[in-house]
Amino acid sequence: MTDAPHTLLAPGANLAALRNTRGLSRTQLARQAGISASLLSRIEAGDRALAPAVAAALGKPMGLSMADVLGRASVSQGDEQRVAALHSAIRDYDLPGRHEVHENGILAALETARQHRDAAEVDRLLALLPQLLRSATTYAHDVNTVDAWMALSEVYSTVYWLAARHRWMDMAELAVTRQRWAVEQKPDPLGVAIAARDRAGAYLNGGDFEGGLTIVDRAIAQAQSGLSGQERAFAVGVLNLRGMTLAGRLHDKQEGRREAERHIASAWEAAEWFDDRDWHRHNMIFGPRNTTTHVLATRLDLGRPREALEVAEDLDTALTGLPATRVGPTRMNLARAQLDVGDRDGALESLSAAWDAAPQMARIHPTAREVFRVLSSLHRRSKPELLRLSKLSGISL
């Protein structure tokens, strides 16, 4: 595998290790990245959380992606074998198997994968995906229908999701390429929009936020012309959610705010089609509730934690009905916002809630690991909850 090595370090500590390996001083790296040396020093010391946009800026002078700086999640030896099996299945994208695959079996396996993903059961999803991908490949080639190719595209979308969560960037980028290929065999406008959304996600993970925004804007125009009604609102909505996330991480915060507000306004307009109930389609979620979680994260990425906290005032209501894959990261972002305004106790409470909602995701998510690192550094006395999270995360106090 060509990805960067696994790391047990939280992102800020991983950044320090990468910088030291390259023989760069803090002053040198900060100057090349266009950030202050004092900010870099605070991040490495554990006094400030490493934000994704800052990770992207610091990675560029070292020839690293944002995902490299945040650190590739570690996996067990058994999971390494499953990752290799998944790589093999992706390589064989145009080699259907000889065994017969029945529609009922594919639909049942897809539903199981959806359940594992919604519950953030990362280990079960990884165990299921290699064979599911091979079966879906065979089925799509055999029956050659729109629904069959959409099913295969959905499997590749889930592969991308899993790879991106672990920062396996070679697999993530290959998955979105295969996803687009699958959906183009029998084009479905909604599938095309979802594939573009995931492709823009690969740009996001790599730190190329401008490139990702280009993909999003082009896909929105295509969805607006190729779809109608709620399907168009859904496609445009999920693309705008990706767009606001990308915009929030632009290095130029003035431009980022302008672009983010454009995508936020468009997302809210699309969300009006769904009243108070979000739609779930092909592992995508869109509606007012998921829009709220993305606006919170975007305000935070723009360096406006107090605005993020304002969005979170009725967060329990917003999270009602959303899967663990949205609840966990949103609680992590709330913890980061609280940390940024000096509310350490609130941040610890929110981080604990994130672990309770999605423990397997929290274990590998850079925000959860980074917020814990900073909290453990700032608290002069160990709290029982910090000790619990230390054991769960594998990060020493």
Rank of each mutant, 00 (worst) to 15 (best):
residue 196 A to M: 09
residue 250 L to M: 11
residue 204 L to Y: 09
residue 187 P to W: 08
residue 261 E to F: 08
residue 219 A to M: 04
residue 228 S to I: 13
residue 236 V to N: 05
residue 185 Q to S: 08
residue 182 A to Y: 05
residue 218 R to L: 06
residue 184 E to H: 11
residue 248 G to W: 06
residue 256 G to F: 01
residue 189 P to Q: 12
residue 182 A to D: 05
residue 255 E to L: 14
residue 216 V to K: 09
residue 227 L to F: 09
residue 185 Q to F: 03
residue 200 A to D: 06
residue 211 G to W: 00
residue 191 G to F: 04
residue 234 F to S: 08
residue 246 L to P: 00
residue 229 G to H: 15
residue 217 D to Y: 01
residue 268 W to G: 10
residue 220 I to W: 00
residue 188 D to W: 09
residue 200 A to F: 04
residue 248 G to F: 05
residue 258 R to H: 15
residue 260 A to M: 08
residue 257 R to P: 03
residue 214 T to R: 10
residue 212 G to N: 04
residue 211 G to Q: 02
residue 235 A to W: 01
residue 259 E to R: 13
residue 269 E to D: 13
residue 254 Q to V: 12
residue 248 G to V: 04
residue 182 A to P: 00
residue 229 G to D: 13
residue 197 R to C: 15
residue 187 P to K: 13
residue 257 R to V: 07
residue 225 S to D: 14
residue 197 R to M: 15
residue 239 L to D: 00
residue 243 G to M: 10
residue 183 V to T: 10
residue 225 S to M: 08
residue 186 K to M: 10
residue 206 G to D: 03
residue 199 R to S: 11
residue 249 R to Y: 06
residue 257 R to G: 13
residue 215 I to E: 06
residue 220 I to Q: 03
residue 267 A to H: 02
residue 188 D to G: 11
residue 262 R to F: 10
residue 233 A to F: 04
residue 189 P to S: 14
residue 238 V to Q: 04
residue 217 D to H: 03
residue 203 Y to R: 11
residue 252 D to I: 07
residue 242 R to E: 07
residue 254 Q to L: 11
residue 273 W to T: 15
residue 247 A to Q: 08
residue 243 G to D: 09
residue 233 A to I: 14
residue 244 M to E: 05
residue 187 P to E: 11
residue 255 E to N: 12
residue 217 D to Q: 05
residue 214 T to E: 11
residue 187 P to N: 11
residue 187 P to G: 09
residue 263 H to C: 09
residue 261 E to C: 09
residue 220 I to G: 02
residue 184 E to V: 07
residue 273 W to V: 12
residue 195 A to T: 09
residue 268 W to I: 14
residue 252 D to F: 10
residue 213 L to F: 02
residue 234 F to I: 10
residue 244 M to H: 01
residue 262 R to N: 11
residue 252 D to G: 07
residue 260 A to P: 00
residue 252 D to P: 02
residue 254 Q to Y: 06
residue 239 L to R: 00
residue 245 T to V: 05
residue 247 A to M: 07
residue 186 K to V: 10
residue 196 A to I: 05
residue 212 G to W: 02
residue 237 G to M: 01
residue 195 A to W: 04
residue 200 A to I: 06
residue 190 L to I: 13
residue 218 R to D: 09
residue 181 W to Q: 08
residue 196 A to E: 13
residue 210 E to C: 02
residue 243 G to S: 12
residue 188 D to A: 13
residue 269 E to C: 12
residue 251 H to K: 15
residue 180 R to V: 03
residue 270 A to I: 03
residue 255 E to A: 15
residue 236 V to L: 15
residue 204 L to D: 13
